[in-house]
């Protein structure tokens, strides 16, 4: 699994990363998948909006925001995706199965907020 270390190897004192270069969240962080309703291209399924999740891993390297890329706007949109876990019982009130069953998905940084 990717480790929560700087994006490009070790850290040299005095080198300042640009906004978005370093991941905002680390494995184990509690986050909420935001409830947004963008017009156009997006990759967060409706059934997960507003759900609390736990960050499992940072996906590296940082990637372009698909929603911007869909319209040819890539500059400055590079952020991290996070593989997050959401308990099935938190998504579906009448879920039948093991209480530990979960849904895993990668979510772009702009769609997550810390809780």
């Amino acid at each position: 699994m990717p480790s929560p270390t700087p994006a490009h190897g070790g850290r040299i004192p005095g080198v300042v990363p640009a906004d978005g270069e370093e991941p905002a969240f680390a494995p184990g962080d509690a986050v909420r998948i935001r409830t947004l309703s963008p017009v156009g291209h997006y990759r967060v399924p409706l059934y997960l909006r507003g759900k609390a999740a736990s960050v499992e891993a940072v996906i590296r390297p940082a990637a372009i925001d698909n929603e911007e890329e869909g319209y040819g706007r890539n500059a400055g949109s590079r952020r991290h995706y996070y593989r997050v876990a959401v308990p099935m019982t938190a998504i579906w009130a009448d879920y039948r199965g093991n209480a530990a069953d979960s849904l895993r998905i990668e979510v772009f940084e702009t769609w997550l907020e810390r809780i």
């Binding site: 990759r43 995706y81 876990a85 199965g97 069953d101 979960s102 849904l103 895993r104 990668e106 772009f108």
Partner: peptide, 15 residues
């Protein structure tokens, strides 16, 4: 079995 945990991965984004 009920005691085996199921993880469903929804591969919608990029991985």
């Amino acid at each position: 079995p009920d005691d085996v945990e199921i993880r469903v991965s929804d591969s919608t984004a990029m991985v």
